[in-house]
Design a protein around this nucleic acid. Structure first.
Lengths: 152, 152
DNA sequence: GTTGAAAAGTGCTGCGA
DNA sequence: TCGCAGCACTTTTCAAC
């Protein structure tokens, strides 16, 4: 699975990351190959697991989800991790969860409607999970950068 | 701009978040309306800024970016924020940057090839930025949850 | 692996209700 | 405002290079 992707693959990824809906024939023209080649390459990249499909970008603030926060979670024992993850998965407000090194056992990113909603999620959903000792909250006042990794 | 989206809009969002490439006519059949209606609704949601288009999902690990980390940044003065953001924008490894409440001034998510690359980014790129006092690193050992907010 | 064209399916637009 | 139908375009496939 350690096939080295070539320059054409990289250029294709770069163009598609800028605009997924661009027509294959249009991309093909820019890269100097045929539309069929673009199709084959993208299929290969998908089969290799490099491309995982496309996702709709929804603006949370526009549908009433104004508060984004990061939560550092302290577990009583590291061994309780798996059980805690399963319970966190049931909380729809959690959009990302990482098992991390450093002060915290886990790190969560959550999206809520307002600060009242955030408090409810913290008090009534997260802090009642077995093994969760305490949490620390960092509310995002502004998302200054949001992008994908650059290819190469 | 506070138009309340109706049930059809919500169902449409839900289906498209599951699969952006699903055919309009197929979605229309499931929701019991015509393909034209789906088109009009999606156009409206886009114009309202709720839908911001689609994005290609690329698996960072598959192209050699194995390390994901969160960096808490301490600034000397909060007022240096804007200048710091501009310099952070030049660092391609930073994929998210938030201005936060709590212990840190800013919170960054960064994607690197390996721990050596991470050390380089921290020492040679982030800690030399004007106003950055020190940083704290949380390496993600596992991303247990990664999803979008649930509609409703 | 790439090409070029043919075949199948999709999104878009105007008209009618 | 919504639904239907035709047109234009795109993706997909496939034989040949």
């Amino acid at each position: 699975m350690h096939y080295q992707i070539d320059n054409l693959d990289k250029q294709l990824l770069r163009l598609l990351m800028q605009n997924v809906n661009r027509a294959y024939t249009d991309i093909a023209k820019e890269l100097g190959v045929s539309g069929g080649t673009i199709h084959v390459r993208l299929k290969k990249l998908t089969e290799m697991g490099i491309v995982q499909g496309a996702q709709l970008q929804v603006n949370p603030a526009a549908i009433g989800y104004d508060v984004c926060a990061f939560i550092g979670v302290f577990l009583e024992k590291g061994s309780e991790y798996k059980k805690a993850v399963e319970q966190m998965r049931q909380i729809p407000e959690i959009v990302e969860l990482h098992y991390t090194t450093g002060s915290y056992s886990m790190f969560a990113k959550i999206i809520c409607r307002d600060t009242k909603h955030l408090r409810e999620v913290l008090n009534e959903k997260m802090q009642v999970i077995d093994g969760v000792q305490r949490t620390e909250t960092f509310i995002s006042l502004e998302e200054s950068i949001s992008r994908q990794i650059a290819i190469e």
